[in-house]
Design a binder for these strands. Structure first.
Lengths: 243, 243
DNA sequence: CGGCAAATTGACACATCTCAAAGCCTGTGG
DNA sequence: CCACAGGCTTTGAGATGTGTCAATTTGCCG
């Protein structure tokens, strides 16, 4: 198999790809794989030899807490088009697992291929680098949200971000999307207890901001939700620039 | 002027630099500058044409909160040897300011030079990329700390990390270091109020874990402080690997 | 000595956690 | 078609952590 169309779209939202860039991307061989809910896609540790990009569903970076078995913190969510653990290509090891959130499909890319790109395709190299820099910008925004927002607004921020990211690659529209996360998992993302997440969901519902049945989320009033969350999509870099 | 020795040491702690790599690094022209406390080193916005590396003192990434003038969140601290806003090289713009924490000195590197490196020096390119990936790993660890630690332990984690980073480039030793941060600034980093930070400091002092006079911090019991903070330096990638 | 910013303390309000219980889905077996 | 089990969601009440506001103390510098 080959590079996902989502990833090409992810890059094209942000820079101009030449014919050559696209041809090079499409020539990269990949290995396809499916995962069940909670399954480990990339284990933590030192010997990663490949990285993966999301094709369908979502994945999460899950940090286990030492000395508190069973407890964990989720520091990132990845959606179709994300080159998930590209970080592992330049790091000696990952300090967290990448797990499947709900059912998911990914394409694995061998690090040998990535190394070839860094040897011969400077522009593509900068674009891959950019993708990890955007992940870092998202991390920073999560830090800002955690430090400055109360639970409802914090949850609202996550919903605004996910919808924007999904919509930007064509994986969501009409302010609706599939969010295959349990409230317990949301709690691990936002740093609250599941009970408190539940109350935050209840408040957003009561304010008429969202509808949420099972894994189906619909944002009823984008303006008010985004204002509550102080959401500004600037950090997602959804604009063409030359790199 | 040229690349700081601290940055060379930063890289050498993590990978093997060839003679050629080092020569290339030292050939990069830079511009030196000094900053007063709170001064903006790199303004946010779209037109960054250069990035900076820390030479002396510290700097911080400061996010202003929209609609709440004067309030801010600090999402990263940088110490000597850090290539601070390398992110700006591959991003279209920065969504935060980089400010000086206390007095500081930096060396600016023009993006034209960085682009040359990505065209001609794949190994150095991967090392620069690595430096931004380590920043991202630090962001993730801050997210984990924010979600899982109480105020004293959270503060303890920051102290452990800063000492480790400073010591790794030779800018601190004997469990002492200079921390030019006001409690108000610590509050913006940790996501608490200054008053609560003060109580966290008091608790660490009362437990005999630290001594702290003015900007001078001394860690009295590294073992217990690190255990309290569940600090594991793995994420700082302080070990040689081939990239 | 005076003046200012920062650090420190106290009392009370609010946000979030903890523990316990009840309600709701969904799949399974009778 | 019903009964049941199990996981998830929802609700309630009381404990703990953190925020807010006001006041005092400390330390530095003129």
């Amino acid at each position: 198999m080959a590079i996902t169309e989502y990833f090409v779209r992810y890059l094209q939202r942000r820079d101009l790809l030449s014919e050559c860039d696209i041809a090079c991307l499409r020539a990269i061989p990949t290995q396809h794989a499916c995962f069940r809910p909670g399954e480990v896609i990339v284990p933590r540790g030192r010997m990663a030899t490949r990285s993966c990009m999301m094709l369908r569903g979502m994945s999460a970076r899950q940090h286990e807490l030492v000395g508190r078995p069973g407890e964990r913190v989720i520091t990132a969510l990845h959606v179709p088009g994300d080159f998930v653990d590209l970080h592992a290509f330049v790091l000696a090891g990952l300090e967290h697992d990448v797990i499947s959130v709900g059912e998911s499909e990914v394409e694995f890319v061998d690090h040998v291929e990535l190394r070839q790109i860094t040897q011969n395709f400077p522009h593509l190299t900068r674009l891959l680098w950019m993708s990890t820099a955007i992940d870092a910008a998202i991390h920073r925004q999560w830090l800002v949200a955690a430090a400055s927002l109360r639970s409802s607004a914090h949850l609202a921020h996550l919903l605004c971000e996910l919808y924007t990211r999904l919509a930007s690659v064509g994986a969501a529209q009409d302010h609706r999307f599939v969010l295959p996360l349990l409230q317990k998992e949301l709690a691990d993302i936002l740093g609250y207890t599941p009970i408190h997440v539940n109350r935050a969901v209840r408040d957003l519902r009561a304010d008429g901001l969202i509808r949420w049945n099972g894994a189906e989320v619909e944002i009823l009033d984008w303006q008010r939700l985004a204002r509550l969350a102080r959401f500004d999509p600037e950090y997602l870099e959804l604009g063409r620039a030359r790199r």
